[in-house]
């Protein structure tokens, strides 16, 4: 586990957490409940995600973190028998309105998954994918985007000679950063990350954490994580969920040092999982 993370701890202390997002909430979740068939996974959750900050979602397995984050870009639409109630507003627009353009919504929310899922094509084609599906064919635009996104994802130096190699040949950590590059290539407002490091080794994890720190401010980032230290290191705000309910939400430092709820206290101190 060691070095990679240990060296990070000192920089954590140097972060100055902004108390509030600069222009208020970008996503407002209100009384949001969700059912998989007859099984209710989310219960009346209400929280606001602040623009430009990193928000961590923590909680034990099966508490509904993935369900919630996947509700934000409507990835749950793929599941048969799904039902919801309540509203989620993105830039003040209810994304579950029947006339919402789901594809446009997803273009404004990049998503990174638990397991790296690069497409079986070249590195460059992977990054250019969001633009290509948008109909952009201009080589110069595509090339510029690929370079910019790869640089932003701190991958450029490692892959600049391998742009036309198959992406599946990259290491796990590189693949995940490639997925981040892909997610930000289309210039989204929000970056959703569902346990982006859980399949990676400590060194690769540290790189991704660095990257999140770099991207902070440019994008609103929501990250689901199992790793308490990670949440403490990278996030401004933290939401703790338990059995489908939001238990506590607030400033990361407060959640970790002075939580209001006993359960939060137990969880962040590792007394239960």
């Amino acid at each position: 586990m060691a070095e990679g993370i240990d060296t990070r701890t000192d920089f954590v202390q140097t972060i100055s957490y902004p108390r509030k997002g600069e222009d208020g909430a970008v996503i407002e979740i209100e009384k949001f409940s969700l059912w998989y068939g007859s099984h209710q996974a989310l219960f009346d959750n209400t929280l606001n995600i602040e623009r430009g900050l990193v928000t961590a979602l923590i909680g034990p397995s099966g508490c509904g973190k993935s369900t919630l984050i996947r509700s934000l870009n409507r990835m749950n639409d793929l599941i048969d028998g799904l039902r919801i109630s309540g509203t989620i507003r993105f830039n003040a627009e209810n994304i579950y309105n029947p006339d919402v353009d789901v594809i446009g919504l997803r273009k404004r929310m990049g998503m990174v998954f638990q397991k790296p899922n690069p497409f079986p094509m070249t590195v460059a084609d992977n990054v250019a994918y969001p633009l290509r599906v948008d109909g952009i064919r201009d080589r110069r635009v595509l090339d510029a985007t690929v370079v910019r996104a790869l640089k932003a994802a701190a991958l450029w130096d490692e892959v600049k000679d391998r742009l036309n190699d198959n992406a599946l040949g990259l290491s796990g950590g590189q693949q995940q950063r490639l997925c981040i590059a892909r997610a930000i290539a289309g210039e989204p407002d929000v970056l959703l990350m569902d346990e982006p490091c859980s399949a990676l080794d400590p060194l690769a994890t540290a790189k991704i954490e660095d990257l999140i720190y770099e991207l902070r401010g440019r994008y609103t980032i929501i990250i689901v994580t199992h790793n308490m230290q990670q949440a403490a290191r990278v996030s401004d705000n933290t939401a703790f969920m338990y059995l489908g309910t939001l238990i506590e939400y607030g400033d990361t430092r407060t959640i970790f040092t002075n939580p209001k709820h006993g359960r939060t206290q137990d969880y962040v101190t590792g007394r239960f999982g």
Partner: peptide, 14 residues
Amino acid sequence: PQSMREGSLACGAS
């Protein structure tokens, strides 16, 4: 893999 489809849809592909 379903993850490939999800990856593509999440990129805003139809």
